[in-house]
Design a protein around this nucleic acid. Structure first.
Lengths: 351, 351
DNA sequence: TTGTAGGCGTTATCAC
DNA sequence: GTGATAACGCCTACAA
């Protein structure tokens, strides 16, 4: 009775030779049989940090190579309760194309794999959370906003979570981000001290946390410097949205002399609208600044004055933080805030 | 003896109440016990297409909700040998930012999840293949080039593979792509019939299959129309590379009157170099065309004449093709080639 | 160091 | 329709 399983395995492989030929997967039992050792020896051999004698190791490895054996991660996950899988959630608006690539590299270095979720519709977030839970991911990195309930679900289930570029004041929501308010403050300061006085602000969607933080930073600094309240319009973070917003801001009598955009893409739209439709010179007639460090903003025609987010640092910090929580789940919630880097382009009149 | 497992389960949950409280995962046994039914009943209840009586279903679902039970996908994978995981491989050069998002949506519709691999270094491809095999993915979509050996490994292991935008003539390499030669042909035809005669071509890296196909299409069409051999330079698909290439092409005596670029990003670089550094008017002094349908190419300042790849169609076709192969592994190798769409912008002088 | 035996949580296969 | 029991492929005490 106790030998049933072993017998089955032996039968299967001895009755028809090469297991691959009959479409069965090569298991550690096949390797063990060929090498003439026990299955557990094979297992140890493929588990880093377990002691196996040199003789046995070579014998097993030879057999494994011959059969093309690779351990089945699924069976391993089931017993170790470690999937080495990290769920990465991004919203479709997500700007930075390097993001996935950088993240992927850091994961590779740590032997982690990346289960990818894109959020297009609102319902997608719930589905993503359900799926990543079913796959028993070791942790989650989110570049998308999640509801308090969704964060709560992850917390209850003990899945470590790190937000990237979404600073939340919610229990259990670790995050790494960029100091949006500080960055906007720098831009405003520069613009004011260069003599700008009529500000127009192109914010993002009202619901966007990032947009709100940037807007707040700009407004606070303007107030602190004693400037008149700026004209604020909300847009949608897109190029077309930027152009439209610019049209709106410059339609009135008192055209702004400085446009502060909540991201680079909209700033680019503003510049194009100014030059191509409004016949305004940038930065002579109007200064335009953005935020992000979007590559096209640095193309010859734009040379956007902006604040570059330290994406590489942020991503590395997020992975570090997540891994720390996976290894030590009781770690306290933490935020890491990086300063951006002021990029003085030529889209704004600054000293 | 035969009751050992059941006994263990019952002991664990009855001795300490709520299983979540002690960090154990909620299993189908917990639900079964609470609902007063067998574990198999719970399993059937969560398996679409299995018959369960209405009474039992409600009883089980109530218990499941109460405990927050979700089936463990890992255990399911182990027995069903279906992971519902699709590996997606992209190279870091990968241009189209929507790609991941579109792909993700199609996968969601089919209940598939996305295991994501980015290739930065050459060794990454082998690692990716090793990993995706260990996770027993159901299939692979690759937007990166793989070696014949790597394709062979997947074939041997019976993992369906579909290339996207990489047409290979290798056994077992299904693919969906865009007709690069046809598209370049359209561009060349338009340019020639508008009177252009001195062509400069900015190709991609020599190793790039896509670049080679586009270059071949352009050269063939030029030859067919009896044009003089164009000046060809190779670059790296980047903005900076495009600017540099433009400088090179226009440095000689006989400046080209039409620049054909292997992608939009380089074309944008060429336009900027022409306008900002060489003081040339586009398209009056020189026409520039690209290939891809990269969004910034349509910004006001560029309005690139180009061929837009039907990304959405291609991605959908790739997923369809892959799923078909997963369900019917013996299907013959297939290529699907989509025509691009000519975008007549204003970066080229065309009737 | 090596082998034995018992799970991990699910689906599949039978009897009933 | 329902319930017992055997896989799935591996890791891990524990005994040798």
């Amino acid at each position: 009775m106790t030998k049933t399983r072993t017998a089955v395995h032996h039968d299967a492989s001895s009755s028809s030779g090469d297991p691959q030929a009959i479409g069965r997967m090569v298991t550690s039992y096949d390797v063990a049989k060929l090498a003439g050792v026990s299955q557990s020896a094979v297992s140890r051999c493929f588990t880093p940090g377990k002691s196996v004698s040199e003789r046995m190791r070579t014998k097993i490895m030879r057999a494994a190579d011959e059969l093309g054996y690779q351990p089945n991660a699924i069976a391993r996950m089931l017993i170790t309760k470690r999937s080495n899988l990290i769920a990465v959630i991004v919203s479709n608006l997500s700007v930075n194309p390097d993001f996935a690539s950088i993240l992927s590299q850091h994961m590779i270095e740590r032997g982690l794999n990346l289960l990818f979720f894109t959020l297009d519709q609102d319902a997608d977030a719930d589905r993503a959370i359900q799926q990543l839970w079913q796959y028993r991911v070791d942790g989650v990195i989110s570049a998308a906003e999640l509801s308090v309930e969704q964060i709560g679900v992850l917390r209850e289930r003990g899945i470590p979570l790190v937000f990237i570029n979404r600073l939340y004041d919610v229990m259990g929501a670790n995050s790494v981000g960029c100091d949006h308010a500080e960055g906007e403050g720098w831009l405003i300061e520069k613009l004011v001290s260069a003599g700008h006085s009529r500000f127009g602000i192109v914010a993002g969607p009202e619901a966007s946390v990032v947009s709100r933080m940037r807007l707040r930073g700009a407004l606070d600094k303007l107030a602190a410097l004693g400037c008149a309240a700026p004209q604020v319009v909300h847009s949608d973070f897109t190029y077309a949205g930027g152009r439209e917003a610019m049209r709106g801001l410059c339609g009135g009598k008192k055209r702004p002399d400085a446009i502060v955009c909540a991201n680079d893409l909209m700033a680019i739209g503003c510049i194009d609208e100014a030059r191509l439709a409004l016949s305004l010179k940038v930065p002579d007639d109007v200064s335009v600044v953005g935020f992000d460090g979007y590559a096209p903003g640095q193309w010859g025609g734009y040379q956007l004055t902006t604040v570059r987010q330290p994406v590489a640092s942020m991503v590395k910090a997020a992975v570090d933080m997540l891994v720390a929580r996976i290894e030590e789940p009781s770690m306290a919630t933490e935020k890491r805030v990086f300063s951006g880097e002021l990029v003085e382009g030529s889209s704004a009149r600054i000293d």
